[in-house]
């Protein structure tokens, strides 16, 4: 089933590879590279899933996630965070803010696609 996925990531090559992989799975993929533009993009595109890099310019992943969870319509939007390997404190902070899942860079394509599929098929609020 075609779903809309928004990738918030500022590294063009990572965006390109994710776009390729998720498009092949039949999803409609959009990308945004600036933190401050994520919330407006969500409002415009109404994605079914957000892939969110923690280290975004302008507004980081924590601030964006916090804003998303404070917005009534977006409380159940599935969010998959991309974090740097080994930064346990970052993962805990994302969990506390209500992230649905996270994956560390560098990730395997198979792992990423599996997590995306699981989040898109899980009932809302139960990843």
């Amino acid at each position: 089933m075609l779903r809309r996925i928004l990738i918030a990531e500022d590294e063009p090559y990572i965006v390109e590879s994710l776009t390729f992989l998720l498009s092949r799975e039949g999803h409609e993929v959009s990308a945004i590279g600036d933190g401050a533009a994520v919330l407006p993009a969500i409002a415009r595109l109404k994605p079914d899933l957000l892939i969110l890099d923690i280290m975004l310019p302008t507004s980081n992943g924590f601030e964006i996630l916090s804003s998303i969870r404070r917005t009534e319509d977006l409380k159940t939007l599935p969010v998959l965070a991309l974090s740097a390997k080994g930064q346990e404190a970052d993962r805990k902070r994302m969990s506390d803010l209500g992230v649905d899942d996270y994956i560390t860079k560098p990730f395997s394509n198979h792992d990423l696609v599996s997590r995306v599929t699981r989040l898109l098929t899980a009932p809302p609020g139960q990843p």
Binding site: I14, S17, A84, N109
Partner: peptide
């Protein structure tokens, strides 16, 4: 530099897997 290493290794791994698996 750490950020750059992570980004580049992520891109290398992802594209290498795409080339291999598709």
């Amino acid at each position: 530099l750490t950020h750059a290493v992570l980004m580049r290794s992520t891109a290398v791994r992802s594209f290498a897997e795409i080339v291999e698996q598709h």
